[in-house]
Design a protein around this nucleic acid. Structure first.
Length: 257
DNA sequence: ATGTCGTGACTATCACGA
């Protein structure tokens, strides 16, 4: 079974990219972020025609998350991250697919820092941590996949000083990600590729793709029950190189049956 | 500070988020 996460940066703007990648990569479950579409604008018919059922939570202009499942309908379990009913941003959706509970998440970017955006980022991660602990404690097979907007370690970014003040690399941001690993979640990409340079995002500006000036922001975390099923993992970098591509590449893992 | 995109205000640029 192949499970992927992809920050699509506009699901309608890049629908042809998405469909081409689905056909080529053939993932069984896909977590999407940054739909940049309202619920009504989600391209349900095209995704259905490609052979995928879907659940989604959209929002006008920004954010938006979805879960696709090949040949079946995901069973929605949550459409918001618990802990703050006043939070209206569409950044979390969770569903049951093929005996796995899977979440597609899009953590806040947090820039500029310091300020309310960074405070919101940390508060959101705190809520994620609380919910993740509950999920982990169930003992169920659970996957938390998405754009965490955190560069976990120094080796997960190209050598530069230009991100020193950026919310993506701050100690508080890294501590939030580390706290999930401390609960027992497995960073699947790093587990499969312990020594490799792993980038999943390249800013549109300053020729960062051409220079391979990337960052690792998109992560797939596995609960205890799934760690021994982990078989492979990768990043579909070629997708980032296409004309009009998202600024993120799809990230995937494979699990033994 | 800047770079480059996407979207949504509004009709040709500008604000905002990333």
């Amino acid at each position: 079974m192949k499970i992927a996460t992809f920050n699509i940066n506009g699901v309608n703007k890049r629908l042809d990219h998405l469909l081409a990648w689905l056909a080529a990569a053939g993932p069984d479950i896909v977590c999407l972020q940054e739909l940049k579409a309202t619920d009504g604008e989600f391209p349900k018919a095209a995704i259905e025609a490609a052979g995928y059922g879907a659940v989604w939570r959209g929002q006008s202009a920004w954010n938006g998350v979805a879960i696709l499942a090949r040949g079946c309908e995901p069973v929605l379990t949550r459409a918001a991250l618990p802990g703050d009913p006043s939070d209206t941003q569409s950044r979390y959706i969770e569903a049951a697919v093929s005996g796995i509970l899977i979440a597609s998440l899009y953590a806040p970017n947090g820039n500029p820092r310091p300020g309310p955006k960074f405070d919101y980022k940390l508060a959101w991660h705190e809520r994620l941590k609380r919910h993740a602990a509950e999920l982990f404690a169930t003992g169920l097979p659970v996957i938390l996949a998405g754009d965490y907007n955190v560069v976990p370690e120094a080796r997960d970014i190209y050598p530069t000083r230009s991100y020193d003040d950026n919310a993506l690399v701050q100690p508080e941001s890294r501590a939030a990600f580390r706290a999930l690993l401390d609960q027992g979640w497995l960073d699947a990409l790093r587990k499969v590729h312990p020594e490799d340079r792993l980038f999943t995002f390249w800013d549109y500006r300053r020729l960062r793709w051409q220079r391979d000036a990337g960052l690792r922001l998109d992560h797939i975390l596995l609960s205890r029950k799934l760690t021994r099923r982990l078989k492979g993992a990768g990043i579909d970098r070629e997708v980032r190189g296409r004309d009009g591509a998202s600024d993120h590449a799809p990230v995937w893992i494979t699990l033994r049956d």
